Amino acid sequence: MLTRKQHELLLYIDRRLNETGISPSFEEMKEALDLKSKSGVHRLISALVERGFIRRLPNRARALEVLKIPEADKGAAKAPVMPPRPANDDVLDIPLHGRIAAGTPIEALQGTDTLPVPAALLGPGEHYALEVAGDSMVELGILDGDYALIRKTDVARDGEIVVALVNEEEATLKTLRREGQMIRLDPANRLYDPQRYRPEQVRIQGRLAGLLRRY
């Protein structure tokens, strides 16, 4: 059982990693939890590490990885949070490259369509969109028919949701893990098994930056 502050800090770190891919600083954590000193943050992090909720990544300053969150918070904590669109918000048309599997890998189609996206939802860098097909990422709030907003990059950290091109022919949306000498692509659905590949079989084509859902 976590204390209230431990619970708040765990969800805050998890949300920031999903939104930015970077762990928050101790100063940011102190302010977010309204603590009086950074020593309080250190104690909370140590407690979360001891209980197996997070781990410190070696040889990297400020690098934390969330290993698990309480069951009751999974959907709310992991699903990217999209702010409401202001009336005067700029809209960008980003390339829409077909459908990507959130289950068994399928070909990521290259298309000429575009998707209008509020600029506020996109950070720096070049982006494209893919329509999600399948249900293997539902436990992270990524549903069939959603539009995944992808920031182009060829590198990713453990625990990030990526577009992975497998054997130069099939692409899939999964959580990236490094497991010894292998690359593991994890689904977020208990009905699916992780997929394991040699590093040369997998090429990162982007990192999940957000989701759009039409109702």
Rank of each mutant, 00 (worst) to 15 (best):
N59Y: 15
R56T: 13
P58D: 07
A120R: 15
L57A: 05
E71C: 01
L109W: 03
I69A: 14
T114Y: 11
E71S: 08
L67T: 05
A108P: 02
I69C: 08
P86Q: 06
E50N: 14
T104P: 00
L92N: 09
P83W: 02
D73F: 10
G98R: 05
I106L: 11
P105Q: 02
V66G: 02
K74S: 05
E65H: 10
Q110G: 06
T112S: 10
P116T: 03
R85G: 00
G111Y: 09
L64E: 02
P86G: 05
A87W: 11
G75T: 08
R85M: 10
D73W: 11
V117A: 04
P86D: 03
L115H: 05
L92M: 12
N88L: 11
G75A: 07
D89Q: 08
D93S: 04
K78F: 14
P84C: 06
V117I: 12
T114R: 11
K68Q: 10
F53W: 12
D93W: 08
L48D: 00
R60L: 08
L57M: 07
D73T: 09
R60K: 15
V81P: 01
I100T: 05
R55Q: 06
P80S: 08
P116Y: 03
D73P: 08
A108D: 00
P118F: 08
P105E: 01
R56W: 05
L121M: 12
A77H: 06
L115F: 09
R62K: 14
K78M: 11
V91C: 01
V91A: 01
